[in-house]
């Protein structure tokens, strides 16, 4: 196990790069497998030079639940933002900034949260201050800011803390 760790420092990254290579070449032949393994190995070794802080994915079940929630929310917020865009003039002027305090501290968890919040139309991650843990958001439909805090904390932050901390 330790010997394998030395050859492949990041097994998950290795697998991801290998799968990416096979998808790109659209084949499963032995030659492409070997070539992909070489490329993935190179990528892993390059990664050791960057020396990222160690990340551990704790609960795959929680990650799957988060993915499901994000999928549903992307769909719902697409419909919501679409109706705002096509709706009347006064619905488009409720946009505004808001700030909230995050309890999540893990950099990987914050990165995932940033991608999720920006990917769902209607919320936009603007700036996060790691010293105070305060996040500045821009929201397109800012009628009730408490509701947004409840959504973000309840739907995403708890699960992300479970996964990454």
């Amino acid at each position: 196990m330790n010997g394998l760790r030395r050859v492949i420092p990041y097994p998950l990254l290795f697998l991801a790069l290998l799968v990416m290579w096979l998808l790109m070449t659209q084949s499963l032949s032995l030659g492409q497998l070997l070539l992909g393994a070489v490329v993935a190995l190179g990528g892993c070794w390059a990664m050791t030079a960057l020396d990222p802080p160690p990340a551990r994915l704790r609960r795959p079940a929680a990650a799957a639940r988060l993915a499901g929630r994000v999928f549903v929310d992307v769909f719902r917020s697409n419909v919501a933002v679409g109706s705002i865009i096509l709706g009347s003039e006064d619905r488009r002027t409720h946009a505004g900034f808001m700030r909230l305090k995050l309890d999540l501290k893990s950099p990987y968890g914050l990165a995932v949260l940033a991608i999720v919040l920006t990917c769902t139309p209607g919320t936009q991650w603007v700036r996060y201050d790691p010293a105070t843990g305060l996040l500045l958001l821009h929201v397109l439909d800012l009628v009730d800011d408490k509701e947004w805090v409840r959504t973000i904390k309840g739907r995403y932050e708890g699960l992300l803390m479970e996964i990454f901390e």
Binding site: N78, V81, G82, I85, R92, C119, P121, Q124, H138, L140
Partner: peptide, 11 residues
């Protein structure tokens, strides 16, 4: 407000 528009097409 316009920042929210491209993510419709991207998702």
């Amino acid at each position: 407000a316009r920042l929210h528009a491209p993510s419709l097409g991207a998702t």
